[in-house]
């Protein structure tokens, strides 16, 4: 009787210890000696282990009868790598890219200062730089991009930076609306990118003039301004960054918007990594674009604000373009002083 009681107690102790060991190690505990066959052989010794399956298949999956096909995958180690990127690396990449760019621009502003109009850049005569459709396209993309960037950064940094400030309830409500804005404004953003590509692609093909412009540092190095057509090399870099980045964001965003419609779990994770990384880099690049278009350079905003710029400014910064435009009209500048471009 005492022996039976001892065996029962030992069995109970093992039953209690095994789950605890599993919780600590995450692995199955080897079967105790008492469960082996009476002849001494372990009947599961030759069975396939979890580690062997991972090595052979790279994931554990089976067959299911419900419509959710991805539920067939029981374990997928790549998911841990994605989670590590999403929770550890990505917030740092976003923070360094955006705060780093803001710091660079601040340093540039306080050391170089605002690029002022030179005396010779003000003639009083105006030339139409961007027509109303071009400005419409630019501002539609700009409006959408600002909302997309803020709501996108909320996915990455919101729970870390915003939620402690406004509390979980307000953060949940804000995030819900931010998500709607992100999903729906992505469409006019893409439409605007498409329009941009159509109206500006021809003027943004790189050529030898751009090489010379870069060699002269866009006018910052050496004397005088380098020649430039309608867009200089710096503007072409911004254009291609926005076009390629914008279409990449649309492609990966489409995969995220329709989950598992064209990608499996690995594809979804890859899409999220690509979408988020390009998104934060694009946001940092556009910060520089906003700076140079507003605070950084006097007169630059007019080109996209009213559409017209001073003829002397245009001759200084885009001399080859002005020559072409004047050759087209053969009557000097398109706009006289105080004239308003056609809307």
């Amino acid at each position: 009787m005492t022996r039976l009681l001892r065996i029962a107690l030992a069995g109970l102790a093992l039953a209690l210890a095994a789950p605890a060991a599993h919780a600590q190690t995450g692995r199955d505990v080897p079967p105790p000696a008492q469960t082996q066959n009476p002849n001494g052989a372990n009947p599961t010794a030759g069975a396939v282990t979890e580690d062997q399956l991972f090595r052979e298949l790279n994931k554990l999956q089976g067959r299911i009868s419900i419509p959710d096909g991805k539920a067939a995958v029981l374990e997928q180690p790549q998911g841990r790598e994605w989670r590590a990127f999403r929770e550890s690396w990505l917030p740092w990449i976003a923070g360094v890219a955006i705060l780093g760019m803001a710091a660079l621009l601040a340093i540039f502003y306080f050391t170089r200062g605002r690029i002022r109009l030179e005396h010779g850049e003000q003639s009083g005569e105006k030339i139409l730089r961007f027509n109303s459709f071009e400005r419409f396209t630019h501002w539609m993309v700009a409006f959408c991009f600002i909302v997309l960037a803020i709501s996108g950064l909320n996915y990455i940094l919101g729970k870390r930076l915003l939620m402690p400030l406004i509390g979980p309830d307000a953060f949940a409500a804000w995030s819900q609306w931010a998500k709607y804005a992100h999903n729906f404004l992505a469409w006019p953003f893409t439409l605007g990118i498409l329009f941009m590509a159509l109206v500006w692609l021809r003027d943004n093909i790189p050529n030898r003039i751009d090489v010379q412009w870069i060699r002269q540092g866009g006018g910052f190095l050496g004397d005088g301004h380098p020649h430039a057509e309608r867009f200089n090399a710096g503007q072409k870099i911004v254009f291609w960054t926005v076009i390629l980045g914008g279409f990449a964001m649309f492609g990966t965003g489409l995969l995220l918007l329709f989950p598992f419609s064209a990608a499996d779990i690995n594809g979804m994770q890859l899409s999220q990594v690509t979408h988020a990384t390009i998104g934060v880099l694009l946001t940092a690049a556009i910060l520089a674009h906003i700076y140079i278009g507003t605070l950084g350079m006097e007169g630059a905003y007019d080109a996209m604000g009213s559409g017209q710029v001073d003829l002397a400014w245009a001759r200084t910064h885009h001399d080859l373009w002005v020559e072409k435009e004047q050759a087209k009209t053969a009557s000097g500048p398109q706009l006289r002083p105080r004239a308003t471009p056609a809307e």
């Binding site: 109303s132 400005r135 419409f136 396209t137 630019h138 501002w139 539609m140 409006f143 959408c144 709607y180 804005a181 999903n183 729906f184 404004l185 992505a186 469409w187 006019p188 953003f189 439409l191 605007g192 918007l257 559409g307 809307e343």
Partner: peptide, 21 residues
Amino acid sequence: RVMLISAVAAILVATGAAFFL
């Protein structure tokens, strides 16, 4: 005026996208 029109156009396209989605 162009800025305002572009913002309104963006909201209209977004509303259409919301409906179809």
